[in-house]
Design a binder for these strands. Structure first.
Lengths: 340, 340
DNA sequence: CATTGGCACTCGGAACACGCGAGTGCCAGA
DNA sequence: TCTGGCACTCGCGTGTTCCGAGTGCCAATG
């Protein structure tokens, strides 16, 4: 089939261009790949591919390079996710298992992902809407100041100072502490706020002021936490791949990488762990990132996402390999978090 | 005095070169600065300055640029720290006062510093050896598992799980909690470990196992915390200033910026808040950062440093302005932390 | 009708030459 | 000690040439 050969040519062009970073011509193509046809034939196919908008020439009398649409075709139909080597898998497990706490896990994941892909890696902190409250602690600092500490099942800790309008004694604090814990311990964050709503009613009228205040603070800590969408970036030195001018492509990228809001948008809305999102060039939902692609996926237990992670790299990236690495890191990270 | 004029010429060269980023010649110099002498005279002075190794020509028939030694002279003797404008001061206070917790304070400081200096900013998290223990909390999770929460005066919280060899009842936990707090509340971290050493002796022999275990965990949490030298980096987009090739200067910089150990070395050992360290070009204690300078200072209460912060930029930076910004941010940060 | 070899054509980029001008060093004179 | 003058030096931008990779088209072929 002639259609089949055309696709083989496209695949060859993508692979060659990705590895050499130079426009690829018909002659070089038949030499490096065993296509079994002559350069002239390949030229005809290339002309057809160009008509379809899958490849283009940077200028006349140069070889062809894939367009975004060409990469899209390649990713969708011409390639498959490349599994990692045994050595890489071993590296992942040993590295991730050495982590001591949540921060460390995230940190190591970023480093790992950037090293595996040789690209800029982005990992979102686990979003904790699914996690549960492990404990609430109240500490009397002074008679009108309480320290509220919220401890979550994922191991994160949130703390707030509560300034009271009037002094409170230790017994009252003890009662409040116990009722707070009774209300929310074991609850999922999403439900905890509800459970707290009725709590002030359990108290005498004159005691309600400090109670309401504390409850309000706790609720705000919980909701802050739910929307705490921190991300960590690593491997920025790999931006070197964007060989062209600094101002034109690297500066906006560095700027974007410091804007966590932008990064979250890049990673996409809580992707399910089972799907791998690839956005190529102009498909990336952020102007100023022309020439960049994003490969992202979710991680988490089962079908529910804790968060997302991925990499940003030039459109001319090794998609099969990158996709393999992203998927692998997401899986191992899910496993670690599930156990932890 | 002819020496005075030579120094004036050096100052003028540094200032011009910093603002234009181009080698500065004798003619341009007398035009832009009112030196009151002719270009020829300036040329003689320049020749002398070059003999002394303070300036150099990139190539014959080009203007002069300062050497590292020249910048050093400029910083030490020809310039003074530039105070911030009222608007900048206002920006600092409003921005920093909006912070909600420690993470946020550090985050905002980095952003602030990079915006003020238009350079890469680095802020070390407060090192807590100076800080004191505000409270220790013990929470019974199960009869053989305790959650230990350590709350510090700087607002950081450390937590550990303690697995006990045998069950413990709530009364015993209460006693332990109270004794732990009695021993360490208000203590500085450096001293807390000592104070804990004698604690198991207060208990009956058969109770000592859980006590020792808890104490050991607490001590490890404290010492972990003391060595927790996290740093945060911001404003990497300002690397654009290093105009020359990516591979030659920006890549090693980006790599260094991800190596927190290197950064800590760059910032220098816990500088006192009252001194401002400037390392210029080859003085920077890290190879591969040729062409970079570091301006750093400590922050903290009184003379005792909580940590350090600073910026990294090209040797051709505006030293007076940068020094002013670094010093100002350090002061405001100290104030915020002192109050909090 | 798909494939192939041949051939003229295009054009980007490396190599080279050239001239301008900024900047210097030196020297003699004030 | 400072200044004006003057010859000299290069770096850099511009213009020109030339080479070769790569193309498109066409006629020939199985």
């Amino acid at each position: 089939m002639v259609e089949d050969r055309k696709m083989a040519v496209l695949r060859a062009i993508v692979e060659d261009y990705v590895s050499t970073q130079e426009p690829v011509g018909s002659k070089a193509l038949v030499e490096r790949h065993r296509l079994g046809v002559s350069p002239a034939t390949v030229r005809n196919d290339m002309a057809a591919l160009e008509d379809e908008g899958l490849i283009q020439q940077p200028h006349t009398s140069a070889g062809r390079i894939p367009t975004d649409k060409g990469y899209r075709m390649f990713v969708d139909r011409l390639s498959q996710v490349k599994p990692l080597s045994a050595a890489e898998k071993r590296a992942i497990t040993t590295l991730l298992e050495g982590a001591v706490d949540l921060d460390d896990v995230v940190q190591r994941s970023v480093r790992l992902l950037s090293q595996l892909t040789r690209q800029v890696a982005i990992v979102q902190y686990p979003v904790l809407s699914r996690s549960t409250v492990r404990h609430v602690e109240l500490v009397t600092l002074t008679s009108t100041r309480l320290l509220l500490v919220l401890i979550l099942s994922t191991g994160r800790v949130e703390q707030r100072i509560v300034e009271l309008p009037q002094p409170i004694n230790d017994d009252a604090v003890a009662v409040l502490r116990s009722r707070l814990n009774h209300a929310v311990t074991g609850e999922r964050l999403v439900d905890a706020a509800e459970s707290l709503a009725a709590l002030p009613d359990l108290f005498e009228h004159h005691e309600r002021a400090p109670v309401s205040l504390t409850v309000a603070t706790l609720v705000s800590a919980i909701s802050d936490h739910r929307s705490d969408e921190r991300v960590v970036v690593g491997g920025t030195a790999n931006l070197a791949q964007f060989g062209d001018g600094f101002e034109t492509s690297i500066r906006p990228l560095l700027e974007a990488l410091e804007e966590h809001v932008v990064l979250l948008r890049l990673l996409g809305e809580a992707t399910s762990p089972s799907t791998l999102t690839v956005r190529i060039g102009s498909e990336v939902p952020y102007e100023g990132l022309g020439g960049a692609s994003v490969v992202a996926t979710g991680y988490g237990a089962g079908d529910e996402a804790f968060g997302t992670l991925g990499v940003v790299g030039p459109t001319r990236m090794d998609y099969p390999g990158t996709m393999g690495s992203v998927r692998a890191v997401a899986r191992y990270l899910s496993k670690i978090l599930d156990e932890g």
